[in-house]
Amino acid sequence: MISVRWFLLWYLLLAVLLTTVLACITQSGFNLAAIAALTGGVAAGDIAATVWFDLTHFSLTYAPIALVNLLIVAVLLHYLPLLRRYWLAAVLGAVVLYLMLLLINTIAPMPTLIAATRSGGGLISMLLCSSAGMLGYTWLLKRRKYYA
Results as ranks from 00 to 15, higher is better:
Val95Asp: 08
Ala36Phe: 00
Gly136Pro: 05
Leu80Asn: 09
Tyr86Ala: 14
Leu14Ala: 13
Ala33Arg: 13
His78Glu: 14
Leu141Gln: 13
Ile2Ser: 11
Met100Asp: 01
Leu83Trp: 01
Leu103Glu: 03
Leu102Gly: 02
Trp52Ala: 14
Ala66Arg: 01
Thr117Met: 07
Ala74Asn: 01
Ser28Tyr: 03
Thr50Asn: 10
Phe7Glu: 13
Asp46Phe: 05
Ile107Ala: 08
Leu83Pro: 04
Ala15Phe: 04
Leu135Met: 15
Val96Asn: 00
Ile2Val: 15
Pro111Trp: 07
Ile35Gln: 11
Leu8Ser: 04
Leu8Asp: 15
Gly121Cys: 06
Pro109Met: 05
Gly93Trp: 07
Ala15Thr: 06
Leu80Ser: 04
Gly121Met: 03
Phe30Pro: 05
Ala36Arg: 03
Tyr98Asp: 12
Leu141Glu: 14
Leu55Asp: 05
Val91Asn: 07
Leu60Ser: 12
Pro111Gln: 11
Ala94Cys: 09
Leu113Cys: 02
Cys129Leu: 10
Gly121His: 03
Leu92Gln: 10
Gly93Asp: 14
Leu32Gln: 07
Leu38Cys: 02
Ala108Pro: 02
Lys142Arg: 15
Ala66Gln: 10
Pro64Asn: 06
Val96Pro: 05
Cys129Lys: 12
Leu13Pro: 01
Val73Ile: 04
Phe7Trp: 14
Gly93Ser: 14
Leu13Ala: 13
Tyr62Gln: 03
Tyr79His: 06
Pro81Ile: 10
Ile47Ala: 06
Gly121Asp: 11
Trp87Ser: 10
Leu70Cys: 01
Leu123Tyr: 05
Lys145Arg: 15
Leu123Met: 13
Leu88Met: 15
Leu113Ala: 08
Val91Gln: 06
Thr26Gly: 10
Tyr62Ala: 06
Leu135Arg: 02
Gln27Tyr: 10
Leu55Arg: 02
Tyr11Gly: 03
Leu128Cys: 12
Ala23Ser: 13
Cys24Ile: 08
Ala33Thr: 11
Cys24Glu: 08
Thr20Ala: 11
Thr50Arg: 09
Ser28Asn: 04
Phe30Tyr: 15
Leu88Ser: 10
Arg84Met: 07
Trp139Asp: 06
Ile104Gln: 02
Ile25Arg: 02
Gly136Arg: 03
Gly133Gln: 03
Ala132Val: 08
Ala49Gln: 09
Thr106Arg: 12
Tyr147Gln: 07
Leu77Met: 13
Leu70Pro: 07
Val51Ile: 15
Leu8Met: 13
Ala63Lys: 00
Leu128Gln: 05
Val75Arg: 00
Leu83Asn: 06
Ala66Leu: 02
Ile65Phe: 06
Leu60Glu: 12
Cys24Arg: 01
Arg85His: 12
Trp6Gln: 09
Gly29Ala: 02
Tyr62Pro: 00
Gly41Ala: 02
Met134Gln: 15
Phe30Lys: 10
Tyr11Glu: 08
Leu38Gln: 12
Val16Cys: 08
His57Pro: 04
Gly93Val: 12
Tyr137Trp: 14
Ala115Gln: 10
Pro64Trp: 09
Leu102Ala: 11
Thr20Ser: 12
Leu32Asn: 08
Gly120Cys: 01
Gly122Ala: 05
Leu18Asp: 00
Leu14Tyr: 07
Thr26His: 02
Ile2Thr: 14
Val42Met: 08
